[in-house]
Design a protein around this nucleic acid. Structure first.
Lengths: 353, 353
DNA sequence: CTGTTAGCGCCTTCAC
DNA sequence: GTGAAGGCGCTAACAG
């Protein structure tokens, strides 16, 4: 046993070659290990004297409880898995920060599961939740995993507390934290219409995406409210990425009869789109208005500055983390939270001339 | 004992209410737990018959080894901590992805430590490495932690394998993965000079940052190579963020005697800067050339498209993860790796008229 | 308030 | 090739 051999070597000076265990602390403080454990978990249940001795011994030894042993005993990992479709997507980073902050304050660590579109990974992270590596999970990917009911014998595991963030999971009985995508999309569409636009294109997200479906409904709602007939030729496929915005721009540039405004369901697409339009000599917003969705950092410094829907990303992350922590600590958790969005008017949208 | 009580309840149908343990598998396969363990760790050391029965039992029970127990025994967590200064910074996300990919393939999970400028957090993550929650760590923050030698009794812990990524850690005897910042900055400066610019401003990062210092040296190298005298008034303070680019832009706009080119040490600053310049009626690149550093996704779709230094972010992440895995698995690890950068010429820089 | 005791689930000698 | 047994470090139940 290599590690043990190593650990058993004599200590040199005041720098221990092995980490202190609860036993060492107990011995030094002249109490039992149980008392050390108690002093840490519920100090008020230990006499002031013993407590003082314990803390002194802890300081002297530099003792830090072994998390693996603790987990084995208590069945708690103090770890949370955050599953998301794409770590490289700007939209998520600030959300992650909101999550991390809140988790951190409550003493939980965050493990990232970047799906990267791979089902293999999905299975892997699913196993993660099943194997007791984490106490709970926040799902940003829009569906539940590890919960298949295919009776294949790959048994469904004991399920852990879950929270859905941003992409609601239809039918799942877990807290869902999101914005009202449909309402926000409707508002933007109406805003465009109120400025005189009637040929309003819609640059979509991936069709299977829940957000996309909600936003698309909102777009249609807005059209209807403004008395504009829906025109399928004005729906351009996209996938939320900069690249698909660029592609959509090429499509638009090539058209004979162009829309006067484009509502993009992500800022990244809007920025990619504007870039292509501008390169082709189509001015924004003079020749074509462009609106985004998300209000990422770059929206305000795009050229022209992007009119968009602001999502409270940090707050979304915080709310999801709080809901999960409630669940983990046995407190009642809100079933569903909808955070407010805001229509941010900048320079990429102008009245129809 | 609540959990146990719950776990002991009768199982319903084929959906176990408790996870299978190695004992259950052993019983079902009619072997000892040792054999199950062996079948998993080194299948060749178990007879084909026993092995088959074990795997069948595993499939039937849906057994997944308990990681906490495994860790407690083997002292291995199969977890890696990634410490970074700011999760919300676009620059890091693709690096993280490179790290995650590589770690994932090798069977390691990734725990994120977002420093967020807080020393409190730093101490926390330092404890993480000390407490045996992770097998190793990748440091993107430019300094070592948990390694203070203040003799305060807060003993230095058994140290785990570490790798420094992007920001080299001076004096640390660990693998360092980075680009040649100085050389890249020199190249850009020379590029600007070769286009006829001689009043080349430098929009800096935070002064204490290692990257910043290297890039600043490179800027001076480039100036010198081009025979241009260094002018301190042309150095504008920044901190890599969009916001500091905007501020720098305001500074520049207010000046009577402006530089003809600005070398920004991050794309975010360059984009913020261009935005302010453009709003003030200063055209880029006609009136002023602007160059960036990093080549983030938005650089190519900025208006105008940004001339910048490309960093192989994914590869940086992969290289760091590989180096760490080598270390973790006892293989020799490269001491230091420098990945190549590339000068990407787009539209934000033009010859001096 | 405190100590003793018994595992949490696994891996790994050691003996056969 | 296989099984029995001990212990990784901790916490919770139970006495006292």
């Amino acid at each position: 046993m290599d590690e043990a051999g190593q650990a058993d070597r004599a200590e040199q000076g005041d720098r221990p070659l092995r980490v202190a265990r609860i036993q060492d602390v107990a011995k030094l403080a002249e109490v039992s290990t149980a008392t050390v454990s108690r002093a840490l978990a519920s100090p008020e249940r230990v006499s002031p004297e013993a407590r003082a001795r314990v803390f002194e011994a802890i300081a002297k030894t530099g003792y830090v409880p072994n998390p693996a042993a603790r987990t084995l005993r208590s069945q708690k990992t103090y770890m949370v898995l955050v599953v998301l479709p794409d770590l490289a997507n700007t939209f998520f980073s600030r959300i992650l920060r909101g999550i991390e902050e809140t988790l951190f304050e409550a003493g939980y660590g965050m493990i990232i599961g970047d799906l990267d579109g791979s089902p293999e990974k999905e299975a892997h992270f699913s196993a993660f939740t099943g194997a007791g590596r984490v106490d709970g999970a926040i799902l940003l990917n829009g569906h539940l995993f590890g919960q298949r009911r295919d009776g294949s014998g790959q048994a469904a595991r004991l399920s852990i507390p879950l929270v859905a963030l941003c992409e609601a999971i239809p039918g799942a009985d877990i807290p869902q934290i999101e914005i009202d995508n449909r309402e926000a999309a409707r508002r933007m569409t109406e805003h465009l219409a109120s400025l005189g636009h009637s040929r309003i294109a819609y640059l979509s997200g991936p069709p299977e995406n829940v957000l996309e479906r909600e936003r698309f409904k909102g777009y249609q709602d807005g059209l209807e409210a403004a008395g504009i007939a829906f025109d399928p030729s004005l729906v351009i496929p996209g996938d939320f990425t900069i690249g698909s915005g660029v592609t959509a721009g090429q499509d638009l540039v090539a058209r004979a009869k162009r829309p006067t405004a484009v509502f993009c369901t992500s800022d990244e697409m809007a920025i990619g789109l504007m870039r292509t339009l501008l390169s082709a000599g189509i001015r924004v917003p003079e020749d074509m208005s462009v609106a985004g969705f998300d209000d990422i950092e770059f929206a305000a410094v795009a050229e022209p500055a992007l009119t968009t829907i602001h999502q409270p990303r940090r707050e979304l992350g915080q709310a999801a983390a709080s809901a999960l922590i409630d669940l983990l600590q046995g407190r009642p958790s809100p079933r569903s939270i909808r955070l407010d969005t805001e229509l941010v008017i900048r320079d990429s949208v102008a009245p129809l001339r």
